[in-house]
Structures are given as structure tokens and as C-alpha cells.
């Protein structure tokens, strides 16, 4: 019999990230014939707890006196929660903090650790089948964990949050924060200005630029489109490495994973490591002068043309469309 624990590291109010982690844990627990426990690292309020129960937590553990994120304190607290509920399957979010503490927690628990997974299925004998993209998204590796503790981090936006049951409740436990002298300290947290649109992870429309844009200044054309469509601007790794846009806009294997309704890729060839980040997009539209660019293999709609010629006309056409429909 497996005991499933989902660890949450809230960055404020209950968000889609938490809903995804709980949903992954809830369906796994159901397949294993187990209940889902949730452990919350860091400050959270009662409405946060209500959301956890609504998404399927059966019990919940909070840590009294655990302040803002510090890796060693949060790791130790995660281990204490895991011990208190005798968890042998522990899920973490694939956020910066989740990916920082999950491996060490697994190491100390003697667990197998698999990060950035996109599939997770359990069976009634307690076996887990885990799918993880490898080789920059060119292949999938399917792994079977038969016994022993397992620590798993699901890739962001690889799980669609499940149905909510408002009013669901469960048991709430509180444990004291572990006493230790941390060796790291976050001195400063700076939020990068990423334009006026919504967060990339939550954006319904994303206009994204790559190497083909040629320079930093050309991103203003994407910003103009994004404003018109109420979307946000993203970028490929190539554009971020050039310093044209901040790294917070990077979409791909080691950047953001996004799930917009419309992903408009401009001057992006479509390296597999980039496509990994847009696997959750509903409609991909590509504008590229090279008809052989791999982006066209995943796009639903494509325009083979120079973006310099197309985008100004697209702005005009969209503006007219909006005027007609308003």
C-alpha cells in the first residue's frame, strides 16, 4: 500500500501550480487505492486550505513558524511531513524551489528521484509508470518504479487541474518548523519587468520571437501584437542567450512551459528543446521564411514569409477585425 504526499510551496495565493500538483497526486492516489495527503511549506491561510481540499486533498499538514523560502529549512520540513504521514510517493512542483529541494529530500529518504515528468500512472500493486521527456524532447522515457520510496516532480502545465469540489473538507495537522542554522539566505528577490501582459504560464495568447528577429529592438513588433490580442511576449532560448529579452521570457525545456490557446511563433525555427515548452498549446501558428523549419511540423497554421513584411499587415488586419467585432 502506497501513501501519496503532494508538497506545495506557495508563492502567495493558491495558484494553478498547486492545483496541478494536487490533481496529479489525487489521480495517482486513486489508481493506487490510497488517499492523498498534502504538505504546505511556508505561510498559507484558511482559504488556501479550502482550495487544497476542493481539489482533492484528504488531509493537510502545515508547518508552524516556517517563514519565507530557505532551501534547508523547507527540505527538513518536507522530510518531517513525509515521515509524519509515512509517505512513500512524494510529489513536488517543478518550480525553481521545488526542483531545488526535491532531489535532496529524496536522497535523504533513500528514494528514487525523477524530475520534470509528464506522465504518472499507478496500479493496484503499487507500481508506478512514469513518463519523462529525454533528449531535448525528441524521445520519451517510460520508467517503472516497483517498490521503495519515490520522489517525483511533474512538469509544469503537463497536468490539467481537475474538477473542484467546493466545500470538501479534511483533517488539518500542524507540525513545528525544524530548528536548524541555515547556510544560505535569500538577500534580494527582483521581479523582472516582463511587459504588461499576463504571466506567460497563464497567458491565453503568446507571441513569441526567436533568432529570426535579429535584434532586441524588433521585439517591439511582438509587443504591439501582444497588446492587440491581450497576450504576452515570449522567446526562444536563442533570443534570451543574445540578451534581446530577459531569461524570464524563455520558453522551452529549461524555460517556461506554457499552455495558451494561441501560440504565435515568429522567427522561431522550432528546436526540440523549444517545442517541449509549448506542448500544452492548443493552436500553434508559425511565421517563418524557411518552409523547412521544424516549427511547421507542430504548427496548425503557417505563413512562409519574412516577418518584417507580414507583421505590419497582420497588425492592420487584426485592428480591422477588432473594429468590426466590437
Amino acid at each position: 500500500m502506497r501513501n501519496v504526499l503532494a508538497i506545495l510551496i506557495p508563492a502567495g495565493a493558491f495558484s494553478r501550480t498547486e492545483a496541478e500538483t494536487i490533481t496529479a497526486g489525487k489521480s495517482l492516489a486513486a489508481q493506487l487505492g490510497a488517499d492523498l495527503s498534502v504538505g504546505i511549506l511556508g505561510p498559507s491561510d484558511d482559504s488556501f486550505a479550502r482550495e487544497c481540499f476542493a481539489f482533492g486533498a484528504k488531509s493537510l499538514t502545515r508547518v508552524e513558524g516556517l517563514a519565507a523560502y530557505q532551501s534547508e529549512a523547507y527540505s527538513a520540513a518536507a522530510q518531517q511531513i513525509a515521515a509524519s504521514v509515512a509517505a512513500d510517493v512524494i510529489l513536488f512542483p517543478s518550480t525553481t524551489y521545488g526542483l531545488e529541494i526535491a532531489p535532496g529530500v529524496g536522497y535523504r529518504l533513500g528514494a528514487a528521484v525523477i524530475l520534470d515528468c509528464v506522465g504518472l500512472i499507478g496500479d493496484s500493486s503499487g507500481n508506478l509508470t512514469i513518463t519523462k521527456p529525454v533528449y531535448g524532447g525528441k524521445a520519451n522515457s517510460e520508467l517503472i518504479a516497483r517498490q521503495g520510496p519515490v520522489v517525483i516532480a511533474m512538469r509544469m502545465r503537463s497536468v490539467a487541474p481537475g474538477e473542484k469540489q467546493d466545500g470538501a473538507t479534511g483533517e488539518i495537522n500542524t507540525i513545528p518548523a525544524p530548528a536548524l542554522s541555515p547556510r544560505t539566505q535569500i538577500l534580494e528577490h527582483t521581479t523582472e519587468d516582463t511587459g504588461s501582459g499576463p504571466k506567460l504560464e497563464d497567458a491565453r495568447v503568446i507571441i513569441s520571437g526567436g533568432r529570426g528577429l535579429g535584434n532586441k529592438e524588433n521585439f517591439v513588433h511582438l509587443e504591439e501584437l501582444a497588446r492587440l490580442l491581450g497576450g504576452s511576449v515570449g522567446a526562444s532560448r536563442a533570443a534570451c542567450d543574445q540578451g534581446w529579452v530577459p531569461a524570464t521570457l524563455q520558453i522551452g525545456q529549461t524555460g517556461k512551459k506554457v499552455a495558451p490557446d494561441l501560440y504565435l511563433a515568429v522567427g522561431i525555427s522550432g528546436a526540440s528543446q523549444h517545442l517541449v515548452g509549448i506542448a500544452g498549446a492548443r493552436h500553434i501558428v508559425a511565421i517563418n521564411k524557411d518552409a523547412k523549419a521544424p516549427i511547421f511540423q507542430v504548427a496548425a497554421l503557417g505563413v512562409v514569409d519574412e516577418w518584417q513584411a507580414l507583421l505590419p499587415k497582420l497588425v492592420v488586419a487584426l485592428t480591422e477585425h477588432k473594429a468590426r467585432n466590437s
Binding site: A112, N140, L143
Partner: peptide, 14 residues
């Protein structure tokens, strides 16, 4: 370590 106990049942190109 524990990761050596994981069995890769399938590797495939999606």
C-alpha cells in the same frame, strides 16, 4: 542508488 532500481520499460519517439 535507488534510481538504479527503476526499469526503463520503453524509450520511444513520440
Amino acid at each position: 542508488g535507488p534510481n538504479s532500481k527503476l526499469e526503463q520499460s520503453r524509450l520511444y519517439v513520440p
